[in-house]
Amino acid sequence: METAKAGVKKINKSTYLEWFELMLKIRRFEERALMLYGQQKIRGFLHVYIGQEAVAAGMESALRREDAIVTGYRQHGTAIGRGADTAACMAELYGKATGIVKGKGGSMHFFSAAHRYFGGNGIVGAQIPIGTGIAFAEKYKGTDNLCVTMFGDGAARQGALHESFNMAMSWQLPVLYVCENNGYAMGTSVGRTSNIQEIYKLGLAYDMPSEPVDGMNPEAVHKAVTKAAEHIRAGKGPYFLEIRTYRYKGHSVSDPAKYRTKEEVEEYKEKDPIKVIEQTILSKKYASEADLQVIKDKIKAEMDYAVEFAEQSPLPDPSELFTDNYVEPDYPFITD
């Protein structure tokens, strides 16, 4: 086992149990969200994180709370990984005033300054330069925090990625780029978007340390992020991890995912990170089935509460339309 630096924990039994709990919490949150979407309690776009939970888990155990994270719109799991309150997240999906951003952002736009969570961005790849800028500010202020800038395989084809990689390397910014490669940019497989299918290789063109990582295994993610974070905190500049994962559901709820075979989905379900970690915990005797059931029951109760909280919460007052557009409360909006 690698000895992690101060602030980063060693992997042991409790790490595994924390991973299991977080991953299951994300999975159950997303399952509830899908169900509630079917009941039209949740509207708008909904992109769920099911299948990718090991990325959030392995990443968070390797980071500090002061580190920043910014990501795209498949972001519930990332926010919950940061420690965002699941009731506030569920209320956000309901568009309620008690939501994590007061019902103003919905599924794509959770933000929490308290959690150093710079949001879910709805424009594919727009967060790549933004995360680079968040890292720029950390260097400017002289901290040793880093910014994890997450994006999908689709966003890896945006020009913004290349502009950001170039400046981040040129200016040696403390940024960890994480591509969550789930195989599909909406309905277009990675293989159909470029002749370079191993996305981590894009970083090599800028001499950025770049590696592929097994994203179905939180320990693999943890180790890769730990190593990358040490490099970055040592002032050696950016790092790029292509974390290979899989989304079990369609791009969004309206996507039947006809562009892939049932066999492919079944193959990945055998690698389901939650199934695998549960088996690992049991086989290593980190916990008994009864112990895990306690965690499962706790998460079920948390989700019951989150939905009840969202149901009972008030919708935003219409006057909220005019707040948070400008910092000052008396901006002269055109109202006629």
């Binding site: 710079f118 790549i128 330069p129 933004i130 800028g133 910014c147 170039n166």
Partner: peptide
């Protein structure tokens, strides 16, 4: 696009 986004991120971060 890149340096403007870097500016936006820096502004969000103080």
């Amino acid at each position: 696009l890149g340096f403007t986004g870097i500016g936006v991120g820096a502004a969000m971060n103080g």
